[in-house]
């Protein structure tokens, strides 16, 4: 499998480590009234589509950046690769 790193170009997937769904970026607010439920859902509940998914990959043997990879689980086609930092910032994450 090849992941087209936005800065480095195409790299073999062997350089990367998979973490899980990109929804892991959306870590809930620890001070919310519903924090216990929010964290439970965040940690355990997932959709499992046959088709396009957004995944978190770590370029461990490369530039150490986390990437969000949009990949079709049926055809293996990768249609988008973004720096996870950019995705997080765009989602309003800060400190």
């Amino acid at each position: 499998m090849i992941i087209n790193h936005p800065l480095l170009g195409p790299r073999d997937a062997a350089e990367f480590v998979y973490l899980g769904d990109a929804s892991l970026i959306d870590r809930p607010d620890w001070q919310s009234d519903t924090a216990a439920d929010d964290f439970y859902e965040y940690q355990y509940l997932r959709d499992n589509p046959a088709g396009e998914t957004r995944e978190l990959w770590f370029h461990e043997q490369g530039d150490r950046s986390w990437l969000v990879v949009t990949r079709n689980t049926l055809t293996h086609e990768i249609t988008k690769v973004e720096l996870a930092r950019d995705v997080a910032l765009a989602a309003g994450r800060d400190r």
Binding site: R11, A14, E15, Q61, G62, D63
Partner: peptide, 10 residues
């Protein structure tokens, strides 16, 4: 310059 894996080594 690039960083990659060769024979299981960074």
């Amino acid at each position: 310059v690039a960083r990659t894996a060769m024979e299981h080594l960074g």
